[in-house]
């Protein structure tokens, strides 16, 4: 390692520093040379070279025993720190490698039906011997973790534009029709659907989301004027709004299947040709056949 001190260049040889460190720890050259598997004269000469490179004496050679100078004591303190950190680094890297090998981290984006995530995890458990860990979160956070290789697989309702360039592969794993649903008090709207939705109170996803754009295009094509009471991308909020009878929601069939089965919600109708697609993103290292 090259060190520039006030314009003067010094070289620190870490092999020499390690020899010095072992000699001090062992208390004599004979034991140190055994541990290091090098001859005593070679070890002695390497330590002298080290002293010359630093331009200091590390040992007081007037004494019969191995005695450190003040500079030697300081050098040994630093060497202890340096090799402690080195050991820590090696331990952490080994554990990290082991963790990466044993765990399969699956990111599940907010808004993706949980039942789909569970299906993927069951599949992964059957096909892989790894421990499965699910991380739920926001799209920006999960994409960052995915790019940083903190997540192995990502379940998402959209594919970012740069995915293929970044070396990610993706597969459409599900496609669910978008339905209009709500409390049973809106049952009469099933008749003459979708025309019946004219001026019906609706809670929709935000305008910049893909599903909202598809929904708006559908109503525009059908020439139906809708009344948007509120907007949310949060499926729990949508479900609450609908099941409390405040209005209707437009969402994927997969995300409300449980509420339809329990009769908490009823399906008013389907928006023909409008679907929510779910994708599985994999990095090159995790091309698992699902």
């Amino acid at each position: 390692m090259k060190v520039n001190i006030h314009g003067k260049v010094l070289w620190i040889n870490f092999h020499h520093l390690y020899y010095f460190y072992i000699v001090v720890n062992e208390g004599n050259l004979a034991r140190a040379s055994k541990i290091l598997s090098i001859g005593q004269p070679t070890l002695s000469s390497q330590i002298r070279q080290f002293e010359q490179s630093l331009e200091v004496s590390l040992f007081d050679r007037s004494a019969r025993k191995l005695v450190l100078t003040e500079a030697g004591k300081l050098a040994h303190q630093y060497a202890t720190e340096i090799f402690k950190i080195g050991t820590e680094m090696a331990t952490k890297l080994t554990c990290k490698q082991q963790e990466m090998t044993n765990n399969l981290k699956i990111g599940l984006m907010d808004g993706v039906p949980k039942c789909l995530g569970l299906d993927i995890c069951k599949n992964a458990m059957l096909k892989s011997q790894k421990n499965i860990q699910i991380i739920k979160g926001r799209s920006d956070e999960l994409f960052k973790d995915f790019e940083d290789h903190e997540i192995d697989l990502l379940i998402t309702n959209f594919v970012p534009e740069n995915s293929e360039k970044a070396g990610f592969s993706f597969k459409k794993i599900s496609s669910s029709p978008i339905i209009i649903c709500g409390h049973k008090k809106f049952q009469t709207l099933q008749k003459s659907f979708p025309r019946s939705l004219e001026d019906a109170p609706l809670m929709l996803p935000l305008k910049l989301s893909k599903s909202r754009q598809d929904i708006d295009n559908y109503f525009e094509k059908m020439n139906i004027k809708i009344k948007v009471l509120g907007e949310t991308n949060d499926i729990s909020m949508q479900k609450l709004f609908a099941s409390e009878g405040m209005g209707l929601i437009a969402t994927s069939l997969a995300s409300v299947e449980d509420l339809l089965e329990n009769n908490n919600l009823i399906e008013i109708g389907r928006l023909n040709g409008v679907t929510e697609d779910i994708y599985l993103l994999c990095s090159e290292n995790n091309v698992i056949v699902f």
Binding site: D110, R138, S139, D140, L206, K207, L208, S209, L229, G230, E231, T232, N233, D234, S236, M237, F241
Partner: peptide
């Protein structure tokens, strides 16, 4: 502001209602 709304909507349990409803 749709872009700002989209950023906010990334957080769970958020809902947007337009004044003066």
């Amino acid at each position: 502001n749709e872009a700002l709304k989209n950023q906010i909507a990334e957080y769970e349990n958020t809902l947007f209602l337009a004044k003066p409803n």
